[in-house]
Nucleic acid binder design. Structure first.
Lengths: 174, 174
DNA sequence: CGCACAAATGCAACTAGTTGCATAATGCTA
DNA sequence: TAGCATTATGCAACTAGTTGCATTTGTGCG
């Protein structure tokens, strides 16, 4: 259900094609939602069939046609309903924790490798966050509430990533 | 794939039935993995068919038979392979962030309700962590490395939950 | 007594997401 | 000039997880 909501949100802000949305998932929405192009195209088509979206085919010279989707009144109603309803709890699934519970069977070198790889990945993420913050949110106090909201999600991303990094350091010290 | 690995891990430690594993997912493994009984039973049967598990049916007087599963050599090999291979990155899917990106369409009362509900849930989780820590890990320095590993996962759970709570407070102050 | 809950298992149908393949033009680069 | 990335869409088959229903007996509660 949530992919559908995310598509409604982004199309409500800006109509676009499946490909456009794929690009958004790689840039501005990267720390919100990710989905493959197959999933996006399929979901958009289902939503159009359900009357949540309108679709206009724009032919292009020498390129495949662009199918530009845009939200309908019924799509907007579905989005409003989704926003009003509280999110359910998401099930816990931590494969890394599972490895910790198999500590005695987990080879020390694999352990080391896993944790340092994760560390590198998290540090990269911190840098990506910093770059986004610098580019878009250099003056958080000067933003409208609507513009501040995405900045808050960035802040949480930073807090969580910092917590992960501190923990990895603690574990690696052993 | 990870459910399979988690089942291998817990059965390697202690053979048991699907029902037993369901109970473990509700207690000791609650912050590691969660799955419904249907998923567990189905996966166990598939794993038995694939030769990863042995199954012994224990008839009980006046109760449904218990099917006790226990890991085979080939199951153990699969577990070792899983432990040795680094985990892939998990896709980002944050429905709450999505709501923040639809800030202007998100009614203030729904927002308030969502965040305070989440806050209550996280505080409950902190208490659950504290209870587990008190019961099982009151002396972390006195544990063997193997016993310390689950304690580390608890510590990360605490750190992440604290980060969430601090963030919610920051957001609610607006 | 009747009702809910725990113990113990399972089928069937569904939604969500992944993987592999296919098409077809343009532009870049080794 | 051959090969690879980008733009733009899609089918088919698969794995993973959810939801709803069903069975059978014992135990505790009001």
């Amino acid at each position: 259900m949530s992919l559908r909501a995310v598509l409604l949100i982004t199309l409500q802000r800006d109509p676009g094609t499946g490909y456009d949305i794929l690009q958004r998932f790689k840039t501005g929405l990267a720390h919100v939602w990710q989905a493959s192009h197959q999933q996006i195209y399929r979901e958009l088509d289902k939503m159009r069939a359900a009357g949540l979206l309108d679709c206009e085919t724009v032919p292009q010279a020498e390129r495949p046609d662009r199918k530009v989707y845009c939200i309908t009144a019924s799509g907007r109603a579905e989005l409003d309903a989704w926003l009003a309803a509280p999110l359910g709890p998401s099930p816990v699934r931590q494969p890394l924790f599972a490895k910790f519970f198999a500590w005695d069977a987990w080879p020390a070198d694999a352990r080391q490798q896993e944790l340092t790889a994760l560390q590198a990945q998290l540090e990269e993420r911190m840098q990506a966050y910093a770059a986004i913050e610098k580019e878009w949110f250099s003056d958080p106090q000067g933003l409208t509430p609507d513009e501040r909201a995405p900045w808050h999600t960035l802040r949480l991303g930073q807090r969580l990533t910092e917590a992960w990094l501190a923990w990895i350091e603690e574990v690696l010290e052993e």
